[in-house]
Design a protein around this nucleic acid. Structure first.
Lengths: 219, 219
DNA sequence: CGAGGAGGCATGACGTCGCTATGTTTTATG
DNA sequence: CATAAAACATAGCGACGTCATGCCTCCTCG
């Protein structure tokens, strides 16, 4: 191949194209290998080293991309007048995002390495913190509730469920466990049991029911 | 076709030695590679194929070993007259086991959850189920509580916490979150709040405090 | 305006990975 | 003892991630 009409400047489009392609290969359960990644893209293996430094850099960027998408999904959750319902909606969005592409979710967390830029992850968690704070000022939660702590608890439940479903031990239907678990958590924070249950169920209502289409295909 | 069962006996000692060695390499964060695994053991690479069929078979066996150890740890938890305390103890044992060797824990739950023999995993979960049943018959939980469901909820909390701590997002101290979370869960099952809190704290008391060196700073 | 440094990129090679074809040794069985 | 099969060692294969080399384009400065 000749070097005709090729832009010499580092092209961000190439970078995101490689990232999208890697994410797609992950979603379709093809092994994400350097040579397979660049095959058909017209670029050579060295491009990966130009944009990501190493294969590990690509995984790190993929992880970052995952957190960025997650933060966007959580930020897109509409705020209603019922902050507890919103909390459940955030949980539903978290789980929906995780199981939309379970392999990307695994990549986000199976890391021994840390994020280059933790802003996206922090922003995602902060969505939860804000919702807890809204619930506090609305009088749904006790005054001594630590928003960060309760948000972390919600996250733990969501992650535990997402992880167990994404890796196989629990079936897809087990996602429904989130409703009683979150209800128990929010009631322990001071919310009224029956009201809480209703709020959580409403918030969870935006979670699409278990569809067989999202099951991981076995090629 | 049926191969003769009286095949030449393989040496189980070699098999478990390889497994132990792999587990040790995992714990010391050395890459578990076929050649590195057999280096120094006097056996050749083919031995791995004799005993495990493939490298993937070794990972599967390692996963099995992890669940067997976990089931043993849970079975070793003493039963007291306070079943809720026992539940918390089981949770503490679960987390202690997971963070004793986080890499093995990751292997247990990483992609492709396929166990040859799911008995160990089932037995581990059944420890929880039995504890919930004991709590029910002791009148601590409501009669309409589904033991398997509540056990799954406890597992989800334990796994979420273990996973987030083992992979880095949460610091080691975050394990203490288990106490309020489990309390909230058990209270939602019908236990008395203050009594439950006391039981969980007692059961959790057997959890060793945060050990040094495993701290994962969160930015 | 035109030489030259700088950097993106293709090519090809290197070391290691999991795996296996092949031949040898060991064991069980007639 | 002879023979078949299992366990094993050795050497090699293809694929992997990585990097040294050199070509090509762009930017800059004399």
């Amino acid at each position: 191949m000749f070097y005709d009409a090729m832009a010499r400047a580092k092209d961000p489009a190439v970078r995101s194209h490689l990232l999208d392609r890697a994410a797609h290969m992950l979603r379709t359960r093809q092994p994400v290998t350097l040579r397979a990644l660049v095959a058909g893209t017209g670029v050579s293996t060295m491009a990966v080293y130009t944009y990501f430094g190493s294969m590990d850099g690509l995984w790190k960027a993929l992880r970052q991309e995952g957190f960025t998408r997650l933060a966007a999904k959580l930020a897109a959750v509409s705020t209603t007048t019922d902050p507890v319902r919103d909390l459940a909606s955030l949980g539903a969005a978290y789980l929906a995002n995780a199981l939309e592409s379970p392999d990307l979710y695994r990549v986000m967390f199976d890391a021994g390495f840390e994020l280059e830029d933790a802003d996206a992850a922090d922003e995602a968690l902060h969505c939860l913190v804000r919702a807890v704070e809204r619930a506090k000022t609305a009088g749904r939660f006790r005054g001594d509730v630590d928003p960060l702590e309760l948000a972390t608890h919600s996250w733990t439940i969501g992650h535990g469920l997402a992880s167990l479903v994404a890796t196989g031990p629990l079936p897809h239907q087990a996602l429904a466990h989130a409703v009683p678990m979150l209800t128990a958590l929010f009631v322990s924070a001071g919310d009224d049991p029956v009201r809480c249950r209703r709020s959580v169920e409403r918030g969870w209502g935006q979670m699409p029911p278990a569809g067989p289409g999202t099951a991981a295909p076995r090629p």
